[in-house]
């Protein structure tokens, strides 16, 4: 089973901007509704393969892509 992480952003525009960069770098991503356990924001978050999380975190940092937070996405949240 693939373990996922999720990146939260403050705006939809920021999610889409980050998604384009990650896709360009070859990462497998998917836009999902923002998980309620992490945020009360409306809208969407960026889900990714947790195995990539270190590479993605450093890439977002190096390219100064603004984001709110990165979380491990438990398959069975309480």
């Amino acid at each position: 089973m693939t373990l996922h992480g999720v990146i939260l952003f403050h705006t939809t525009s920021s999610v889409l901007r980050a998604e384009k960069r990650l896709i360009k770098e070859g990462f497998a991503t998917r836009l999902v509704p923002t998980p309620r356990q992490f945020s009360s924001d409306c809208g969407i978050a960026l889900r990714f393969d947790w195995n990539d999380h270190e590479r993605i975190t450093s890439m977002l940092g190096e390219e100064k892509v603004e984001f709110d937070a990165i979380h491990f996405l438990d398959a069975n949240p309480v």
Partner: peptide
């Protein structure tokens, strides 16, 4: 766009972002 997380909302948000 930007309100919901379903496919129609995402499709709309993409069109707006691409135009931006």
């Amino acid at each position: 766009p930007g309100r919901s997380g379903h496919r129609l909302s995402i499709a709309a948000a993409r069109i707006i972002y691409d135009t931006r």
